[in-house]
């Protein structure tokens, strides 16, 4: 091995990405808990956590750019760094989803409203677990396992549909609460998008191994529209 400097710095950035991922996971779980407990103080803390996430995201991006400029990575190293730039952005956006859920907690205030919290918690649990494993695969460059993760998105989608049905039902029963009920749809939507973005991380893991950019999201958008 003749590229100790490059390898050392690559590993450092990988560690930072794992750390960013765990901040995002924690922010998402905390956001859902703040909703469950209707805890506005806890929701406020997630805003602070999101700032930390954003700062780390920029620090990682900067480190990647410096490494590209100074070490002239090629082939697999280059693909790894390009993929890390992408994954870094995905993680930051997931952090925003957590913040979005915290915002819902705040905007709901003390309004009496039925929250499909069991399904929401389940969605959050699946999505964060997907993220956790997808990042593990990304760092260990395990494309085989990574390529199996996106299939779990189906469970998240089913939960989303279930929540959607419950929310529509609540809206019909309580037309006065339509605005507030609509906020709950945001929550489900954010969790659903988070799982989608995990798929992107898995795509990048395959890309590092093969150099091929492959779409793993198998949902047929047109068909989905027809059935709605």
């Amino acid at each position: 091995m003749t590229r100790e400097t490059l390898d050392r710095q690559l590993h450092h950035i990988q560690d930072e990405i794992l750390l960013l991922g765990s901040l995002v996971e924690q922010a998402m779980l905390n956001a859902v808990q703040s909703l469950k407990n209707r805890d506005r103080a806890a929701a406020h803390k997630i805003y602070q956590a999101d700032q930390d996430i954003n700062e780390k995201r920029f620090a990682i991006e900067n480190a990647i750019l410096i490494l590209m400029a100074t070490q002239q990575p090629m082939a697999r190293d280059l693909r790894m760094l390009a993929a890390m730039l992408e994954v870094n952005t995905e993680l930051e956006r997931m952090g925003d989803y957590a913040k979005g859920i915290a915002k819902v907690t705040q905007r709901l205030g003390d309004v009496e409203i039925k929250i499909p919290i069991q399904e929401i918690e389940q969605m959050a649990s699946i999505a964060t677990s997907m993220l956790h494993r997808a990042l593990g695969c990304f760092i260990s460059e395990n494309a085989m396992v990574a390529s199996q993760i996106p299939a779990e998105d189906d469970q998240v989608d089913r939960l989303y549909e279930e929540i959607y049905r419950q929310i529509v039902h609540t809206m019909i029963e309580n037309p006065d609460l339509i605005d507030h009920t609509n906020l709950l749809l945001w929550v489900a939507h954010n969790l659903e998008r988070m799982a989608d973005r995990v798929t992107n991380i898995c795509e990048r893991t395959v890309f590092i191994n093969t150099g091929e950019l492959l779409e793993m999201d198998t949902t047929d958008d047109e068909e989905e529209l027809d059935s709605e």
Partner: peptide
């Protein structure tokens, strides 16, 4: 330089040759 087909090429261009 992005997707070499041969491992020997990969090792050389990523500087992991020798």
């Amino acid at each position: 330089f992005t997707r070499p087909r041969d491992q020997r090429t990969e090792d050389y261009i990523t500087g992991r040759f020798g």
